[in-house]
Design a protein around this nucleic acid. Structure first.
Lengths: 197, 197
DNA sequence: ATAAATACTTATCATACATCAATGCACACG
DNA sequence: CGTGTGCATTGATGTATGATAAGTATTTAT
């Protein structure tokens, strides 16, 4: 196996030795997904946490009119899963899809539960992940409540300058909760004011 | 002590005995807060998780123009805290305030960490709480991205019919991310269409 | 290389929601 | 009692963003 990024991710966040690292990675599957391939579809049961070794994923929903709403992007070294589905065993309301050819580590949900029992520090580690997730979601809600299109966009390029360059504008717009046309306008205004990028 | 609700909350979610329950409640403080009193202010460090025995709290932010955005309401048997602040030791971006005279159990953040070591099932219990929180936040983001004022309001009365009756409309509007005037109009439309409440 | 598909921009028009201002309550309190 | 204060409603008006459509640019496929 060769999940270099995952190993680094684990060692830098978790106080464990080589053997334990291996016992984790041995129990995970590595899979490649082609661009536009699905890791999870609506109404399926999400059984994994996905760790992105290479590539880029997105999690999104589709409403009754077919409009898409992106809840998160997941580039290298990011985790993504639908915890509502994987933890509570409910059919997922979301899709997870590869936006680029990607290499992904599949971490089994039941295996995660097991790790808490066997590796002492794993609980803390998992706690950090959950709290980071909560922090991230809470900030996003606050932004959606308080900020207009321009400010949402500025915040996005501040937070995810890398992702901006890797996904079509349409998807940035979908993440921000505005139309691609609106985003285009916002960008033009910024350009007129001589901001770059 | 007499935190009846907290005890029920613990026993119904956690597999522990009377003695352990007591060891938890003994280590928590119960405090009463008058209406409009603050449990947490912006820039303070949040040191507790608040469990509402009685009354009603709200968590909200204020932008540079003084406008308020409510992130959550917490009625009886709800937990509220700014996890970003309490877990990562950062100054909080939020206020937590009593909307009614309230009785609140203060659960020390470091004590929560300790419980994970001493009570075997507590980790699982805490995990459920975190996952519920995430599920809740994720649904809210999806709603803010995809739904117009009317649908947000309908979802609100579906989810929190009780809270609707206990807080001024201004605050419901603030939770929904619209102005009080807009909410008033949304409600009139509903009334005209002969929906009740 | 060319065609085809996809993405981005621009323009026009439509609309949901915000803003501002006035009014009407209801309830508290001197 | 009147008077004040907070909240809800209403109307007039403004504005940001959505919807639609068309044109241009860029990427992908053949």
């Amino acid at each position: 196996m060769n999940e270099t990024n995952l190993k680094t991710f684990l060692t830098s966040n978790l106080n464990i030795d080589e053997a334990e690292i291996s016992s984790i990675t041995e129990n995970c599957t590595v899979r490649k997904f082609k661009k536009n391939e699905y890791l999870l579809r609506k109404n399926e049961y999400c059984k994994h946490t996905f760790f992105v070794e290479k590539g880029l994923l997105r999690q999104y929903s589709i409403d009754d009119k077919g409009k898409e709403y992106i809840l998160s992007f997941a580039p290298e070294n990011w985790l993504v899963t639908d915890r509502e589905s994987s933890y509570f065993n409910k059919p997922s309301a979301y899709f997870i899809e590869a936006l680029e050819d990607s290499q992904v580590v599949l971490i089994d949900e039941t295996f995660v539960q097991l790790l808490s029992k066997t590796i002492p520090n794993f609980t803390d580690f998992n706690n950090i992940l959950l709290h980071n997730h909560i922090r991230h979601l809470q900030n996003r809600i606050n932004l959606l409540l308080s900020a207009v299109a321009l400010d949402r966009y500025l915040e996005f390029i501040r937070m995810y300058p890398d992702i901006l360059l890797r996904v079509p504008q349409t998807m940035v717009a979908s993440y921000l909760g505005i139309t691609p046309e609106s985003l285009s306008r916002v960008r033009r205004e910024l350009a007129n004011k001589n901001f770059k990028q």
